[in-house]
């Protein structure tokens, strides 16, 4: 067990390493740096001025070296300005400029400063991730039970009218992208054009969550997942219902209700469990659209802001967080699978 987790953590680190390097490379392409220089210093710089700004701010070094600096394994750059002040990657960040540390990167806990929000990246990530966490939690609370219920009800009598109608519903919801269903809900349920059941904006939910201001974004994300998980559960359930041990149970005289609840359910949930765990990384995706749409300033919204404003440090931090969320949930999923299914061993 320990070996298994250790191996998985190693894989995780390696994946994170590769991925951040790719993001680092893409965000540090020359045109991006030029844009950065113009936003940071002055929009009306000449090409030569841009060149020297880039040089002075340490962006002129080879990519590998700068990646090392960001990671905290290479010493931060330093140079002496024409007017004699000492500047450097770590010097600029330190409060005590004289005794600044030599290394300041991810490993030292220094995530850098966001150029958009003018705040330390770690602070931004923490608050935004917290907000998204709240959103995700309610999505899961709504999505998982209803999806399983729909899936099990549809799968227990394959081909019945109930199955047909629930399956149609699941296909319809999975086939509708969030930007369509989101807009649809806003127009018909929260504006003057339709029935105005929901009032308030999701922005206000950041301070004070109520059913009225928070249900729509949750529903929009959950609906897509409900269809998907319900389809998986249904497939798994129909397969289990044709298994021989279900026939055994039926011919033991077990009532249909108990055949489903006691015999079929646990076996049918094994496959959807993996799918549900896969939903976490997917949710990180889903929130990008929904948070922007509802102007809920969570992780997805931050990602959009960082990307559109070329906020290199923030973007990098976002990708690191995303990688860890994906890999940690997969680890949990694999371990949980072993306990759910008594026959499985992980080698």
């Amino acid at each position: 067990m320990l070996m298994f987790i250790l191996r998985r953590i190693l894989t995780m680190l390696l994946t994170a390493f590769c991925l951040t390097f790719i993001v680092f490379y893409l965000t540090n392409l020359p045109p991006n740096l030029e844009k950065l220089a113009k936003t940071e210093a002055s929009a009306r710089m000449t090409d030569a001025e841009v060149e020297s700004w880039i040089e002075r701010n340490g962006y002129g070094q080879p990519l590998i070296v700068r990646y090392g600096e960001w990671l905290g394994v290479a010493p931060g750059w330093t140079n002496v300005e024409a007017n004699g002040t000492l500047r450097g990657r770590c010097v600029d960040r330190a409060e005590d400029r004289e005794n600044a540390a030599r290394f300041c990167g991810l490993l030292q806990g220094d995530w850098g400063t966001s150029t958009v929000f003018r705040n330390p990246v770690s602070e931004i990530i923490a608050t935004r991730l917290g907000l998204t966490g709240i959103l995700m939690f309610w999505v899961m609370v709504l999505m998982v039970p209803s999806a399983l219920l729909i899936g099990v009800m549809a799968g227990m009598r394959e081909g019945s009218r109930l199955d047909r109608s629930l399956s149609t519903f699941s296909i319809a919801t999975t086939a509708t992208p969030e930007y369509v269903s989101g807009v649809f809900f806003i127009v018909f349920l929260a504006s003057n054009a339709g029935v105005q059941i929901f009032k308030g904006t999701a922005t206000s939910a950041m301070d004070n969550i109520t059913f009225e201001n928070f249900f729509l974004p949750v529903l929009t994300i959950a609906l897509y997942g409900i269809g998907y998980i319900a389809r998986m559960t249904r497939a798994s359930m129909t397969e289990v219902m044709t298994a021989q041990y279900i026939r055994t149970a039926r011919l033991k005289g077990v009532s249909f209700r108990n055949v489903v609840l006691k015999h079929a359910l646990r076996n049918a949930l094994i496959a959807p469990f993996t799918v549900i765990m896969l939903q976490f990384p997917w949710l990180l995706n889903g929130v990008v659209i929904v948070e922007t749409l509802f102007n809920y300033k969570g992780f997805g919204w931050t990602l959009v802001q960082a990307a559109s404003n070329n906020d290199i440090e923030l973007l990098l931090a976002c990708s690191v967080v995303a990688v860890f969320v994906v890999l940690v949930t997969q680890l949990i999923s694999d371990i949980g699978y072993v306990f759910l299914n008594p026959r499985i061993r992980i080698a």
């Binding site: 041990y245 026939r247 055994t248 011919l251 033991k252």
Partner: peptide
């Protein structure tokens, strides 16, 4: 079923609930 008439099947592994 089960009380008056009971059945024994060909594949014992498949006829027992694995979970």
């Amino acid at each position: 079923r089960g009380k008056e008439i009971a059945m024994i099947y060909q594949e014992p592994m498949a006829s027992l609930n694995p979970a």
